[in-house]
Design a protein around this nucleic acid. Structure first.
Lengths: 211, 211
DNA sequence: GAGCCTTTTGCCTCAGAGGCAATTTTCTTG
DNA sequence: CAAGAAAATTGCCTCTGAGGCAAAAGGCTC
């Protein structure tokens, strides 16, 4: 296709859409956010730096194996690389939402206005306080580490974020956080409540430690 | 890749996994479940029947455009065709250097995952650069000053925010921002496309007040 | 057996994937 | 600002393999 000299090619001749265009940008984004040079990233994936550069500038289109390799290397899916709308293929609804419990010992203060779809908080998580509760609720969450190191558990993966790192995830992903540094961790926390079913995000609970 | 005559090709040389293998079967499945002949389906997608047959028997691998065309024609996603586990994009974005230049003198770098309702950016606004454009759009906006002083105009009021201050307002409020310090201002910027009435500012200095 | 429909295969072409090496650009550092 | 190093891009080449066409198999029904 695409070629067919005489080809009327049926409806939809140019697939070379946003998707493919966005791919290049997304590839670069992924690599940069991991602070990798072309050389390092390429080696890791099994490509030449030159070729990777071409992919990131949209001058080449990856073959399927390469595409899969890229997705794997960057810890994402092909769908993610293509910026594809996340179409849930199966209508299966996973097991019930877990009621958020309380974890004590955190201090926080509102950093945004209350009563909105989006909530922003500045939170201090003292060391040693384990957030044993796994949270699951609708909406989106974003956080940014201001100071210290954060241990963020998403699903079954544990990420350690340093100062300046941020995370963005679906609140439906079971998640819990804890400090990973001696004097706790300071972070900004923004979340949306797409349909808030009474489930107010309960960060505080315990005695609000200052700062 | 795959080729590289001398190529050690790093870890993970055979991407030709289940995914690619399954693709063939899935293609056939999709076509048959629609009761289409190769000829009809191929015409619809814009391929030759022969080639489609080869794809369905795993003797060829589709290029990216073809893959997208197939997904579209069968009303599914690439991910679906590949039988990919729906892997959420890596939620962690490492902090790092801000890309200079882009967007009218501003430097910014995505701090959250793309393609979501909520977008997070880390922005550096150089001094002197006036954001002449007054923005108005649906959604909510939140920002946090990491460094420097920010002049924020909301409607007809001008606010000056210092380090640690944040603002939360409705994007429908005409707004524009500028640096108010010699070496520009560094800020975190989160916005949603959701709706919500009202709009206020939250000045906050240090760590603070509880709940 | 002959017609008809669908799928597979042989064979060809040529675009383009992908590597290498040289060049240019960007970042450091004196 | 020049010198050097590191990163990114580009020129050029090769050769795989995508993808078309047309002929060759199966599979029907009559």
């Amino acid at each position: 296709m695409t070629t067919s000299p005489t080809g009327p090619s049926a409806p939809g001749d140019q697939f070379d859409d946003q998707e493919v265009a966005g791919l290049a940008a997304r590839l670069r984004e992924h690599r940069l956010s991991s602070r990798l040079t072309l050389e390092v990233a390429a080696a890791r994936i099994g490509l030449s730096p030159a070729y990777l550069s071409r992919l990131e500038t949209g001058r080449r289109q990856p073959s399927l194996p390469v595409l899969l390799g890229l997705a794997r290397a960057y810890g994402t899916s092909v769908s993610g690389l293509l910026g594809e709308a996340m179409v849930e293929p199966d209508p299966v609804v996973r097991g019930g939402a877990i009621e958020p419990g309380r974890a004590g010992g955190w201090g926080y203060r509102r950093a945004g206005a209350p009563g909105r779809a989006m909530q922003a908080l500045r939170v201090h998580v003292p060391p040693g306080v384990q957030d044993a509760v796994v949270r699951v609720h609708p909406g989106e969450e974003w956080l940014y580490v201001l100071q210290g190191r954060l241990k963020l558990t998403l699903g079954d993966r544990v990420h350690v974020l340093a100062e300046g790192d941020s995370a963005h995830f679906d609140s439906l992903t079971p998640h819990c956080i804890a400090a990973d540094s001696a004097d706790g961790v300071e972070l900004l926390f923004v979340h949306t409540l797409l349909q808030s079913p009474g489930g107010e995000l309960c960060l505080g609970g315990g005695p609000a430690a200052p700062h």
